[in-house]
């Protein structure tokens, strides 16, 4: 008894959820990435050794930092929006504006962080 879906993959990807759907899917991907990252990080700090050194090198790589900081920051800011809209349900009618505010907060912080990460990676 598996799950029966009545849409195919291509149709699913073309789903017109737009802004809210994008935040939903990024929140989910980011959350899973953080769970995996934290679990592996704890394990590598516990076992140490060659594997730990290798994993630390991966975590300190600038491409990985750009990726995981996107996940963490987006999950945090989008999560705050969800908390505010869920705990004060009357605000839900402003959800579209809330998502605009969310991107307006996210993009400057993330851009500065990426700028700093890349500048450090280039040896500045």
């Amino acid at each position: 008894m598996g799950l029966k879906r009545n849409v195919g993959l291509i149709e699913g990807l073309r789903y017109q959820g737009k802004g809210p759907m994008l935040t939903y899917i990024l929140h989910r991907i980011g959350g899973l990435a953080i769970v995996i990252f934290v679990a592996v990080h704890i394990l590598s700090s516990y076992f140490g050794g060659q594997t730990g050194i290798f994993l630390n090198a991966v975590y300190e790589h600038w491409i990985f930092q750009i990726f995981i900081f996107f996940c963490a920051l987006f999950h945090a800011i989008n999560g705050l929006r969800i908390v505010i809209l869920d705990l004060w349900p009357k605000l839900i009618e402003h959800q579209r504006e809330a998502i605009w505010v969310e991107w307006a907060v996210f993009l400057p912080i993330y851009s500065i962080a990426v700028f700093v990460i890349v500048r450090t990676a280039l040896g500045g």
Binding site: M1, G2, L3, L32, V35, V38
Partner: peptide, 21 residues
Amino acid sequence: FAAAHGLHGLLSVIEDYLSHP
């Protein structure tokens, strides 16, 4: 708090995509 929050998130993802009990 991160582990408990992450565990609940993981469980909701599992329940969204897998229906076999």
